[in-house]
Nucleic acid binder design. Structure first.
Lengths: 177, 177, 177, 177
DNA sequence: TTTT
DNA sequence: TTTT
């Protein structure tokens, strides 16, 4: 039984972070992942942005509170969790979220910029985020305890998008179910 | 049958890129992933850096050629591939590499910096990398064809490392096999 | 940008498979993943079953049609896709599904066939092994086009392997490094 | 920093399991993953089998000891670990292995037991479902401590479920959002 | 050395 | 609604 979600994307809005009565901290993050799809009808490449709702507890919520903002690029590993709730008309409703197990803040610090002529302004070092044994290798872990680190400064080249492959994009909005 | 590797790390040295006689481009990237391990003996947290050798062909090699340098932070998805070769003493040797299927250049552009007071110089948007239908959602794909994009400038906060969890780190160098 | 879901679970009900007017086949599978959770309040371990809705197109839908039944154990790799729709009261509603990119029928061959009346001749699954270069190594792939292969001798049906995609297989033994 | 390996394959030979002087159990498993590759030269589809060496410690080694045999189908989640050693000629050598974090025994229950003489009573695997909060949802986890559970009635051995880890399960139904 |  |  495996229920795993892996996301790399950008935060769409400053996260909500709250502390429950019992003291547990919980955060909610909206993360966008964008992909290009080939549309067979128009023979064009279209972009699709998927928005994910991530729930993070305790230590992870704390890291969100301190370091995650609108625009932050994140690596998230977690699992799908569908919640059942009642709407105002007393109809049963379902919401699917990702319960995070691991989070990595992506991007690079760059105290010492560019050393590469081919990519001016580039050359900053990446970021070394810790990991934990007993969980797969990286970032903030559910159950881990964060501690502050140095901020980072700079920039890097933004490369091209890959062309869409020649596989038709089926339309998820045109399901017969 | 699944043989999948997912890596997020930093490139340790400028990649090697070559073109074969047949015209195919191939790149080799050395990628570091660092994790923190709790050492039960010393009751201390130690860092372990694992170095991975990534092989990328054609379109992916081309993107490496243009945009990947020492220090670049990458997301790599691929599969394990062990090659057999003969050393100078005619002994059979094995080398395990990752054959890349997908690559994402991580980090954020920032043409328009910081909108977040808590993190000055921060707020730039992340990077939207294309995806392809028929392959899981993102980045450069084996078989994809790159096209240039705008460079990026700026900075972001570098957060702390997570503490190691209280699970003992078994020593991979002390195997009885 | 990465949007990846990996599931291993059991099918809860015989899948729905339909063919659209345009000829495309599409299947819907309900998959359960069960995990154990520790409940701090009661100090007990409880079980949680998560139900996932998987959408599979074309070749994958075809494999579902032939080999997937209630109870089948599956490996699914795909991406999250949220669809927007209007309910009977004209309220906007959202449904999150997994759009499958890869599927593997799990389990071992079985000398004793079908124990499921609803699916005569069923009870041993062939296991998808087909792989494609340019996609990570295994199972049935979205975009693959099924082509017949040798049948398995015994009680276990051998599903068609997906044809290799038109991406050349680079030879890892012919590296210039 | 992410260093993750996900494998689904078959065990090639009965595992080695040893107990270190300090009492820690460690197992080594050889796992095959087979994929089909298109060979452009011959325009044929060829099969490639990749052999992986998996190292499993403590609780996972114990489950291997009890339930994993030649032929067993496994789901493995772990990380790459390259060990350095000296060969008989005092040359530095490297070996890359997968250090397992999670293991799932795949396959369906079987009313008809063992068909493998080498592993009497074997032939149907129980399937690991145990999960832990703070780790992604399933199977046997590194760091989990096995505790007996109710046996399965029939021919299929029911492996112990891993105990829940000492991380509280936050209630997804009690969100303040 | 597995499995299909 | 599955499976253990």
């Amino acid at each position: 039984m495996v229920n795993k979600v892996i996301l790399v994307g950008n935060v769409g809005i400053d996260p909500e972070v709250r502390t429950l009565e019992g003291g547990a901290k919980v955060a909610r993050v909206r993360l966008a992942t964008t992909e290009r799809l080939y549309d067979r009808a128009s023979n064009e490449t279209k972009e699709h942005t998927e928005w994910h709702t991530i729930t993070l507890w305790r230590g992870l919520a704390d890291v969100v509170d301190r370091y995650v903002r609108k625009g932050t690029q994140l690596y998230i590993e977690g699992r799908l969790r569908t919640r059942e709730w009642m709407d105002k008309d007393n109809n049963k409703r379902y919401t699917t979220e990702i319960l995070a197990d691991t989070m990595n803040l992506l991007g690079r610090r760059s105290d010492n910029p560019a050393s590469d002529g081919a990519a001016p302004g580039y050359g900053a070092q990446g970021q070394g985020q810790g990991s934990s044994y007993g969980q797969q290798g990286g970032g903030y872990q559910q159950g881990g305890y964060a501690q502050p680190q140095q901020p980072r400064p700079a920039a890097a080249p933004q490369p091209q998008q890959p062309a869409a492959p020649s596989v038709p994009a089926d339309d998820p909005d045109d399901l017969p179910f």
